[in-house]
């Protein structure tokens, strides 16, 4: 499986400068009351500066676990990682806790689905942003306050000066999400991790935040890893898409190819079952069944039990990543003929 991946890195990696993010054979497992849960089972990817990678998957696919692993945010005592994560030349999995604290916020930062979790309810938005700036950049309080104001203006919060003095609960959902983006960008990170940041928002607000994120990403030249379950959101923001299932990337490629020329039956099913009005009166195509239990994964292809094209050989060996095109790959034996 790894052999197949190595091929794809070789031609590009030699010419271009080293990518910002390199993840090799990452696995994450949790010890729980019911045994070991293998949430991520061998993920490889690279991400260049200024690109947006969207990890698309359903609940339990391991997409958020992968994202949190990029900052080692899982509870250390219950989690074990193997493989390699390198961000801007730093080996995340072997950093000490202190070094990790420095990387968080300044090199990598994160935004969440629920902004209330990112803010401390007893401090104002302005205080919290300024505090982060002071801690990471060691500037004076005045300079930090000024930067906080600039940041709120950058995320297009109306009457920003007044909002600096607001407490998190005094803001509406969309404003809080913008404030959290400002907090995450306060130290100009190279990599922004976004965990379904628009899922809880209303339709009209979701689009505003997506457009804002895209614009900021382009202006600041950051790389973004954006996790979502929504194909439509992915189409709006991604450069590259990785479709995740049972802890593995089962299809990766440029967003247009993954949506337009999908290779994997799961991606196909996901697209077919994404409801849109044109299907009125027709039966929706569905993927039968539910995602597998991560405590006892089936052997071979994890999607085999739900796949309409399943063959006996699918259940026998692990399916490698096949590359019909250099940048578009999928784990499905049907590509191999």
């Amino acid at each position: 499986m790894t052999a197949a991946l190595r091929q794809d890195q070789s031609p590009v990696a030699e010419a271009a400068p080293a990518p910002l993010v390199t993840v090799e054979n990452l696995t994450v497992s949790f010890k729980g009351g019911d045994g070991v849960i293998k949430a991520v089972n061998g993920v490889d990817f690279t991400l260049e500066r200024g690109k947006v990678l969207t990890i698309l998957g359903e609940s339990g696919s391991g997409k958020s676990v992968t994202l949190k692993a990029m900052m080692r945010l899982h509870p250390p005592r219950k989690t074990s990682y193997t493989g390699r994560i390198a961000i801007g030349g730093r080996e995340i999995l072997s950093l000490s806790d202190r070094e990790l604290g420095q990387v968080r916020g300044s090199v990598v930062s994160m935004i969440f689905q629920e902004p209330m979790l990112a803010f401390d309810p007893v401090y104002t938005i302005g205080q919290q942003i300024a505090e982060t700036v002071v801690r990471h950049e060691g500037v004076s309080r005045q300079a930090a306050d000024k930067r906080a104001l600039e940041l709120l203006e950058m995320v297009q919060i109306p009457s920003a000066a007044r909002r600096l003095k607001a407490y998190p609960h005094e803001m509406s959902g969309g404003m809080r999400q913008r404030a959290m983006i400002a907090l995450a960008l306060s130290c100009r990170p190279d990599l922004l991790l976004a965990d379904e940041p628009t899922t809880a928002l209303d339709a009209t607000v979701q689009m505003q935040v997506l457009i804002l994120l895209r614009q900021l990403q382009r202006e600041m030249g950051m790389a973004v890893i954006f996790v979502t379950h929504d194909m439509g959101v992915a189409a709006e923001i991604a450069d590259e898409v990785a479709v995740m299932y049972a802890g593995r990337f089962i299809e990766t490629g440029p967003v247009g190819d993954v949506i337009g020329r999908r290779l994997h039956p799961y991606t196909e099913g996901l697209l077919a079952s994404t409801v849109h009005g044109a299907q009125r009166g027709q039966r929706l195509e569905t993927i039968a069944g539910a995602p597998p239990n991560l405590a006892k994964l089936p052997s071979g292809c994890a999607f085999a039990p739900r796949c309409r094209y399943v063959e006996p050989r699918c259940r026998e060996t692990e399916v490698p990543l096949f590359h019909p095109k250099p940048d578009h790959a999928a784990r499905c034996l049907r590509i191999d003929r």
């Binding site: 339709a203 009209t204 979701q206 689009m207 997506l210 457009i211 895209r214 929504d230 194909m231 439509g232 959101v233 189409a235 709006e236 991604a238 967003v255 247009g256 949506i259 994404t274 849109h276």
Partner: peptide, 11 residues
């Protein structure tokens, strides 16, 4: 505000 589902034609 509905996502377009078309990366070539983004909102």
């Amino acid at each position: 505000s509905m996502p377009s589902m078309d990366p070539g034609n983004r909102t």
